[in-house]
Design a binder for these strands. Structure first.
Length: 267
DNA sequence: AGGGAAACCCGAACGC
DNA sequence: TGCGTTCGGGTTTCCC
């Protein structure tokens, strides 16, 4: 389930194989993968375009083309990788982009949640995203202000991509534990000092994830090792690494939430 | 405005 | 063993 560190890793790995290449042709095996535009026009619109930039914004992979922008969201089970052409479609392959390099960019997605956009303006897709966690716009002070401006539980707020962009279920749980904050705390009760701890924790868990090439969870994304550093995620009933209290699992906003009742007081 | 639920999906895990 | 059921995960959309 690619979150920011996993997407960062995938983007970094793909960039050298994509930069400067031209899209020769397209294979589309699950039309609903295309969020926009219409499937029948996608191939003709993207063919012949050159890849000028490969970056990441939140959990989106942003491929700047000579005449547009390709945005890819892997959602739960999506994966993106290069294979030598010609490449016969494998189970769960949704989209192939054949490049002039003799390689094919493969979008494989078991659960069909992933989406691809081809737009003129990236903001059509990225416009509502909140601050990038590592940007200068995101600071201890801005986080505190933003927390004060809502009356919401911390966990769902961290998952809200318009609040801060890129945190998923795993990294939210990890950040809350690292900062010692209960997932059900109301955002407007967070002090300036606590906001500072949360800010540091968000950056720390994401950076550790990136340093470990992301986390290998499920059978989908592989390669990273951050799962070996989880403090609470998936450790229900196991001892907290800080205070030995058994990690508890609750459901918040339909999402499984892991926390330590010893370190993360609800007060 | 916030929160709950459903929808989109499928393989793994579980229950019998 | 084999079947049916439940679950999880990111995001959007709808409803209260």
């Amino acid at each position: 389930m690619p979150e920011l560190p996993e997407v960062e890793t995938i983007t970094r790995n793909l960039r050298p194989a994509l930069l400067g290449r031209q899209v020769v042709s397209v294979g589309l095996f699950w039309p609903r993968t295309l969020a926009t535009p219409a499937a029948e026009r996608f191939a003709e619109q993207i063919s012949g375009q050159r890849i000028e930039q490969v970056t990441r914004r939140a959990k989106y992979i942003h491929i700047t083309l000579s005449g547009g922008h390709l945005l890819i969201h892997l959602r739960m089970s999506g994966d993106l990788f290069m294979r030598p052409s010609p490449y016969a479609a494998q189970p769960h392959d949704r989209l192939h982009l054949m490049l002039d390099s003799g390689e094919t960019l493969v979008f494989n997605d078991t659960r069909k949640f992933g989406r691809v956009w081809l737009v003129d303006q990236p903001d059509e897709v990225l416009g509502k995203l909140g601050p990038e966690p590592f940007s200068v716009e995101f600071s201890s002070a801005s986080l505190h202000t933003a927390l004060q401006s809502h009356h919401r539980q911390l966990k769902p707020l961290l998952l809200d991509q318009s609040f801060v962009a890129g945190l998923g279920n795993i990294y939210s749980d990890e950040a809350l534990h690292l900062s010692g904050l209960h997932p059900l705390r109301q955002s407007d009760t967070i002090s300036y000092e606590e906001a500072g701890k949360l800010f540091d924790a968000i950056r720390a868990v994401l950076q550790t994830g990136i340093d470990n090439n992301g986390a290998s969870i499920d059978w989908v994304y592989r390669g990273g090792s951050f799962q070996n550093h989880f403090r609470v995620y998936g450790r229900t009933g196991e001892a907290c690494l800080v205070c030995n209290t058994p990690i508890q699992r609750i459901v918040v906003g339909q999402r499984s939430t892991h926390f330590c009742p010893g370190c993360q007081l609800r007060a």
